[in-house]
Design a protein around this nucleic acid. Structure first.
Lengths: 244, 244
DNA sequence: CGTTAGTTTGATGGTCCTCAAGCACTGTGG
DNA sequence: CCACAGTGCTTGAGGACCATCAAACTAACG
């Protein structure tokens, strides 16, 4: 490979905004402060005042809210190229916790780094705000799914969204992708019990739509899955170029 | 009353940030372009590229997403003092529709107005971004509710959140508030059927916690309701003063 | 005074939860 | 090398919660 290795975030943003060499350089410089976190130990706790955000470069993270009765609701997952706690930097809230699902690599981004980068390249600022707005749209879509889709459609939709997101950073395709989530993660994210998640997965597998097994999602029949989920990727694509 | 009449938004922001006279003036100037919309006719459609945001000054609005099968999910409600479509201005997406629930009064805010105001008073910019982040936290809490609370708790939580929000703009208290929503609105927001909403309301009424009738919510036993909902208002309060 | 929008209640059934138990695999210590 | 505990997956049985269908009732409105 002769080309420069780009970070997943760079790759993601480049899919939507043509970034100049200068902008690319600023973006890569945001990745200086490298950090590692081990699976299972929360990076940020609910209620904590965080002063830094992270750019995830390898591994998976989930952000969740714990309830008084012990149940938890996973709000969303972060995959390589995603920001983590961006809102907590721009403002000062951190209303949920972050847990690495596997050992992860992330770049710490201080508030000052970010503001400086924004000042240098406004177009980059727009691109990052775009990414943040896309994340928000995903939360809204998640809300719709839990409120108005049955378990099968919810699962199908979720697996398709992941496929889209991972494809954007070169970690999957329409045929499938690696996925370290357990059925408990799926349950906590989709508002189902782990037992029912298992049954839904079996149902999807036996119908020949998709198989989730041994950390790998295999999409057998993409069209059928899209039908089942009524999956409309508009909320992910943010139709049309953001910046020319 | 000898003091100046302030807009609901001003009132809301003032509860969290001490605004100077200059900042108050800039804020009031954002309210120049007054608009009216009639109940039931969408202000913004899903997919439309909106160039303006609105500050709601009177009436209620809901933002929702329609699905292919005809069901809809209400993502949140806007009450006086709330922004509408703020994200669509900063970026350019409008992934859901806005419907006035009653006839409303709103101030149209152009992208340029907003940027100008931000440039003049950075503290005001922070305050408005704070409000936006609070809205986002409400969506997250809504997600948690639909995913992990049963119908009674969901309803109780919803009614308490509204009480908090309305109290902030002087339109209600711990004892109750006026509320123009129908049981269909509640159903679409809470991910329930209208029939079940009715039963849940009856159950809450008969248990002496809260009564929702004839456009008015009466909270009989605030503590019981908080218990039932496991309501923790931390996500609304954004603890501590944002700016001194 | 019929029409429409919203509320109320009953009956029935499906989706999904809970409880319970067994299985496969991995890592750990005796 | 084997017992064992831990984690995650799988399947069955029974039941709760909530959806759906159906119908009656009220109030507002032209």
């Amino acid at each position: 490979m002769t080309s420069v290795e780009h970070s997943p975030l760079t790759r993601k943003l480049s899919a939507f905004v043509a970034l100049s060499d200068v902008e690319l350089a600023v973006l890569e410089r945001l990745h200086q402060r490298r950090r590692s976190f081990v699976a299972g130990r929360d990076m940020v706790h609910q209620g904590q005042t965080a002063q830094a955000a992270y750019i995830l470069s390898a591994g998976w993270v989930c952000s969740y809210k714990l309830q008084a009765d012990g149940t938890r609701q996973i709000v969303d997952f972060q995959v390589p190229g995603d920001f983590l706690g961006l809102r907590s930097v721009l403002l000062r809230t951190s209303d949920h916790s972050f847990e690495p699902i596997v050992d992860i690599e992330a770049a710490e981004v201080l508030s000052s780094d970010l503001l400086e980068a924004f000042a240098q390249t406004p177009r980059l600022a727009t691109a990052i705000l775009w990414a943040a707005s896309r994340d928000e749209a995903m939360v809204v879509e998640h809300l719709v799914g839990i409120g108005r889709r049955d378990a099968d459609a919810r699962m199908a939709h979720f697996l398709l969204e992941l496929a889209s997101r991972l494809a954007l950073v070169g970690m999957g395709s329409r045929e499938g992708y690696d996925c370290p989530l357990t059925q408990y993660h799926l349950a906590d994210a989709l508002g189902l019990s782990a037992v029912h998640v298992n049954r839904v997965l079996r149902q999807l597998r036996e119908s020949g739509s998709v198989t989730f097994r041994d950390g790998h999602v295999t999409i057998h029949d993409h069209d059928r899955l899209v039908d089942l989920a009524e999956f409309d990727p508009a909320y992910l694509d943010q139709i049309g170029p953001l910046l020319k």
